[in-house]
């Protein structure tokens, strides 16, 4: 919901604000009263993220957008895994089901199972074009019987995202929209949208292990935009088997380990 400026009458009704910060605080309180009481937000269980999010987590009846940092297939896979991890944590109840709507099916279900989305929980829907995928997602959101809805689209304008946001808050179901890259340059998050949060995920080099193996994957998680909050960027370790992110070890240790691994690999 766009933050409407309160009319002068309401401002006059409350106590006269003394400073800018206080004005903001009163406005935020009024907005919190406008928004309906929802299911509790889903926290990441990492104070570094939850502390910077407005709801201390992902709103369980809102639209969240995720995109890959670049058009490369690796960043695409990282963004997919981030989505799958969040969806898996929304669907922790053993009987819950989520919908994953796509146009071209190239997901590999064994890989999704390894971040906590076991196949009994996922119902896939394949639409012929983006409009059909968005319509399926909206129907599924309004039904309200799913734990989460994920849709992969290349294009979704302001109207489409607004419809999804309204359907999500009507059906009390979280909506995760994956914006795929259309061309090599353009970031899909450049277009306006009414999402609660917008995330951009990219791959980073993992921590070098003392032996020549691949360590836990590491991502650059960037919150591009959130309502009533500030954007931020974090370097995080990828989802584990239950879809949980983690903070990497301290930077000093990492630099030493990286040098060692480079000498191993050379």
């Amino acid at each position: 919901m766009p933050a409407l400026p309160p009319t002068p009458s309401t401002r006059r009704a409350s106590a006269p604000p003394s400073s800018c910060a206080e004005t903001l605080a009163t406005l935020r309180q009024e907005l919190a009263g406008v928004r309906p009481a929802n299911r509790p937000a889903l926290p990441f269980d990492l104070p570094e993220i939850d502390g910077q999010l407005t709801d201390a987590g992902l709103d369980s009846s809102g639209l969240h957008e995720v995109a890959a940092a670049t058009a490369s297939l690796n960043d695409d896979a990282a963004a997919t895994l981030f989505l799958a991890g969040v969806a898996g944590r929304f669907a922790t109840h053993p009987n819950s089901t989520m919908l994953w709507a796509v146009t071209a099916f190239d997901l590999y279900a064994p890989g999704l199972e390894q971040v906590g989305l076991n196949p009994g929980k996922v119902l896939y829907g394949q639409g012929r074009k983006d409009a059909e995928v968005l319509a399926m997602a909206e129907d599924a959101l309004r039904d309200g019987s799913l734990a989460c809805v994920v849709a992969e689209v290349k294009a979704a304008d302001m109207t489409a995202t607004r419809r999804l946001q309204l359907a999500a808050s009507d059906g009390q179901t979280p909506m995760l929209l994956y914006r795929r890259h259309r061309s090599r340059e353009g970031c899909p998050l450049r277009t306006p949208s009414s999402a609660m949060t917008r995330w951009r995920i990219g791959c980073l080099a993992s921590e070098r292990l003392p032996w020549p193996g691949v360590g836990r994957a590491r991502w650059q998680v960037e919150l591009v935009r959130q309502r009533n909050g500030n954007p931020f960027t974090l370097e995080l370790e990828a989802c584990d088997a239950e879809g949980r992110l983690a903070l990497p070890a301290s930077a000093a240790d990492r630099a030493a380990a990286q040098e060692r691994a480079a000498s191993h690999a050379a």
């Binding site: 009987n95 819950s96 089901t97 919908l99 279900a109 196949p119 009994g120 996922v122 119902l123 896939y124 829907g125 394949q126 639409g127 012929r128 059909e132 319509a135 399926m136 129907d139 599924a140 039904d143 019987s145 799913l146």
Partner: peptide, 23 residues
């Protein structure tokens, strides 16, 4: 669990019966 059959019918009506599946 929630009964999924009505939702599945609804979505299949929109996208065709072969559009919904599990892996």
């Amino acid at each position: 669990a929630h009964d999924l059959a009505p939702l599945i019918d609804h979505l299949a009506m929109r996208a065709g019966p072969s559009a919904l599946f599990r892996m």
